[in-house]
Design a protein around this nucleic acid. Structure first.
Length: 224
DNA sequence: TGCTGATCATGA
DNA sequence: TCATGATCAGCA
């Protein structure tokens, strides 16, 4: 089966909604994608399957998955009750040259401003991949209130990075947006700002949405 | 058992 | 190394 790139937002949403209740095994068969035994060594597999099915246009370039529509695609494993099993990676965090960076022109905001969420109903986490099913996809844009909350977290974290306090940042910081390691392994280091403004080597970090926040998004949208 | 910190695959 | 896609694994 061949996917065409969706031309409009409504076409994309309709396409995603048409997948509701389909099993992962069914999708993989239709698109002739081999199913891994588990996701241990194929962590991005689910996301890549949906990219194929929905016909994303961007590959692994630093731009929205549907560049023309300005929409980012995120697959999120949820329990049958709608609780996300994982936090959601947004983008890597700039650790140097952060002065002058503002919320609205930050990579975090650019990623978050329009997201197509595709829930994958997964229960329990050990459930065989092919038996998981697609939930109801939804298009989300942050409300004013949500944006303010995210911006506050972002500003707190970015200030710490800029002031050379990255070593003190843990995943406990940030109410809805957190900063965590994002690396191939512990030896993958990058440059950051040290306590006295000197360059230091540290683990690359990424911004993540807490599962609690994602849950609110998904629940809120159901009431519309 | 939820969450943090660590990790896996792939392409340029 | 850094971008894309995330989930794993063990501790609190």
């Amino acid at each position: 089966m061949i996917s065409t790139h969706p031309q409009t937002t409504s076409e994309l949403l309709a396409k995603a909604r048409a997948l509701t209740s389909m099993s992962v095994g069914e999708l993989a068969r239709l698109w002739q994608v081999p199913i891994p035994a588990d996701l241990h060594k194929s962590k991005g597999w689910m996301g890549q399957l949906l990219e194929l099915v929905l016909g994303t246009t961007s590959g692994n370039k630093p731009q929205p998955d549907f560049a023309e529509l300005g929409i980012e695609l995120k697959t999120i494993p949820i329990t049958p009750l709608g609780r996300p099993l994982e936090s959601t990676f947004i983008c890597s965090a700039p650790l140097t040259q952060t002065l002058g960076l503002t919320w609205r022109n930050s990579p975090v905001y650019q990623k978050l401003k329009k997201i197509l969420w595709v829930p994958i109903i997964t229960a329990p986490k050990t459930q065989i991949l092919s038996e998981r099913t697609v939930g109801t996809a939804m298009l989300w844009e942050p409300s004013e209130e949500e944006e303010q909350l995210l911006q506050a977290d972002w500003e707190e974290l970015m200030e710490m990075i800029t002031l050379g306090q990255i070593a003190q940042i843990t995943a406990h910081h940030g109410t809805y947006l957190q900063l965590r390691p994002k690396a191939a392994h512990a030896r993958a280091l990058c440059k950051a700002i040290g306590e006295d403004g000197e360059p230091i080597s540290t683990l690359p970090r990424g911004f993540y949405l807490r599962a609690q926040f994602t849950q609110q998004i998904l629940q809120h949208d159901k009431r519309r």
